[in-house]
Structures are given as C-alpha cells and as structure tokens.
C-alpha cells in the first residue's frame, strides 16, 4: 500500500542520511540502503548468537554450583542470556530476516558469535570471572549501543544493559567471597583471571587499524566508539576493581600513564584471536554441536505445539 508515487532513490538516501545526521533513529519500515540493512543484520545477529551460545559456558556449572543461593543466581543469569538473545533476534527480524534463517546461520557457521564463548569454563571461579570480566566488557560495549541508529537494536540494548549490571555484580561478589576463603580458593580465582583477561580484551574486536567495518559502521551511527577506545575504557575501569579484589592482571606492561590519565597495557595475541574466529578455539565445535542438538531435539516440541494450536483453532472455528 503506497499513497505516494515512489520517490527516487537519491531522495530516499538523502532523507536517510538526514535522519542519521540528526542522531534520530531509523525504524523498521523506513527506507534504508541495502548495505546498512546488511550491516545491522550482521551485527545484531552476531550479538544475538553470542547471547545464546553464551549460555553454555556458565550453564556448565549450574548442577555443580556450591549452594542453593549460587545455583538460583546462576540459573537466573543464564535465563537472562536467553532473554537477551530473544530481544536481539526479535530486533533482527524487523529487518526482514526470519528466526529460522538466523538459527540456520548460527548452526551452519554462516554467522559468527563472540570469540570469548569458545573458551572453556574449567573451574567454578570461571563463573565469577565471566560475570566480572566478560559481562564487564559487554557492558562497556553495550552502553554506547543504547544510542545506536537502528531503533529496535537500541531499545533491545537498553533492556539488556539494565540486566547486565546484576550479571557483573554477582560475578564480582562470587570472586570476592572466594578471595576471603582459603589459599586454594584464592589461587583458583587468580588462575581463572589469568585465563580470561586476554580473551576478555579481545571481545572488543581487532585493533582499529585492522577493523575494516568500523569506519562505515560509525558513519551510520551503528557503532558509537572504536574497538580500541572501548578496550581502553575497559582496562581503566577494571584495574581498580582488580586491586580491590586482590588479584593480579596478567600483563607485565600494565601501568598508569600520568600524561594520558589512562593505563598503558600490552597487546592481546591477535593471532590467537583470528584462529578462534576461524573456528579453531578450544570449544568452537562443541558449542555449535550443542546448539544444533538442542535445535534438532526440540523439533518435535515445536511441531506438537503447532499441531495443538491448529487443532484448537479448528475446534473453535
């Protein structure tokens, strides 16, 4: 249904760019350049997949959480990750891609998810470290995305950010509790932090001079800060938290720079990062296989519910 004759594309593009320029939001039924649509789909899908795959590393510890309190917290946290995935899938679907396609893209490897979730959770302390560092990095990344130019994505991010704070605080509290425990528990925390520090810093993506999509994404207001900017922010926020906790961050180059009023820090191993993205991280195959199994094992439930709905509709008609 169109009441006006088709405006030609240059007019539509000018209107789109004027909206971006005003820092207004693009909404689902607006005209948008195909490349913008594709870029938002790619970013939101990758983000949604990360939330869904992100349930696995921590879900691994639900049955072995040391108390009912910790188990209830962990269950609520993993349920939130599922919720975050669903908000984001629903935002992504407003761009004309179906949930089924998105799921297929994830389990076929056609779309990526955050490299961090390809690392294993070897000890219970990892539940705390993930909350503190991984969700901490996610918060750094996501707070500016609340102002992203695509309306439904920004609205999902606002809901998600409200919930991430619980995630980070429960993780930090878990680690602080262990740090007040035995030497063995303190060692467990330090060992966990040693394994997760660098992968957490990699979550912001490659360095700016090796990030081909950043400039266009920033021009479109999809991204609001560069990868290196956000990484620096994360380091500056985390160092005092690590001091308060009593753990050492595993970076010999980490020191305060008076002139920059920021911490200098070393460079993550970008070869490892690329290798994990390519599919060669410790858990890539396991994560996808698990997601695929859950999808396929759930097929009969989806079909049964559809059949039940069809019968109920027939009965009432």
């Amino acid at each position: 249904m169109t009441l006006t004759p088709e405006a030609d594309e240059s007019e539509l593009l000018a209107a789109f760019e004027a909206t971006i320029e005003r820092h207004d939001r693009i909404e689902p039924r607006d005209w948008m350049p195909e490349a913008y649509r594709k870029t938002v789909i790619r970013q939101v899908a990758q983000h949604a997949h990360s939330e869904i795959i992100g349930m696995q590393p921590e879900g691994n510890w639900i049955t072995r959480a040391p108390s009912l309190r910790r188990k209830a917290i962990l269950l609520a946290k993993v349920q939130d990750e599922a919720g975050h995935g669903l908000y984001l899938y629903s935002a992504c679907e407003t761009l004309g891609v179906s949930r089924l396609e998105l799921t297929e893209m994830l389990i076929s490897g056609g779309q990526k998810y955050s490299s961090i979730f390809n690392y294993p959770t070897l000890s219970y302390a990892d539940v705390g470290t993930i909350g503190w560092l991984v969700d901490g990095a996610a918060i750094c990344n996501q707070v500016p995305l609340c102002r992203t130019s695509y309306g439904p994505y920004g609205r999902s991010m606002i809901r998600i950010c409200k919930e991430e704070s619980f995630h980070q605080r429960q993780g930090y509290e878990l680690l602080a509790t262990m740090m007040r425990g035995t030497d063995e528990q303190r060692e467990m925390v330090q060992e966990s932090v040693n394994r997760f520090w660098w992968p957490a810093l990699m979550m912001f993506g490659p360095p700016d001079d090796d990030s081909p999509n950043t400039a266009q994404s920033m021009a479109w207001g999809i991204k609001r800060n560069t990868n290196d900017d956000l990484r620096q922010r994360m380091v500056d926020m985390t160092v005092p938290q690590a001091e308060a906790l009593g753990v050492t961050l595993p970076d010999p180059d980490l020191r305060w720079n008076e002139e920059r009023q920021s911490y200098d820090f070393g460079s993550p191993d970008w070869d490892e990062f690329k290798d994990v993205i390519k599919g060669n991280g410790p858990c890539n195959r396991q994560r996808i296989a698990h997601r695929r199994r859950a999808h396929e094992d759930g097929a009969w439930v989806r079909e049964a519910a559809t059949a039940f709905a069809a019968r109920a509709e027939g009965a009432s008609a």
Partner: peptide, 10 residues
C-alpha cells in the same frame, strides 16, 4: 518487542 509462539496462550 516481539516473540514467536504456537498460539495466543503460549
């Protein structure tokens, strides 16, 4: 937001 469900109640 939105979601998928088999019927209204779900």
């Amino acid at each position: 937001g939105s979601l998928h469900a088999a019927d209204d109640e779900m």
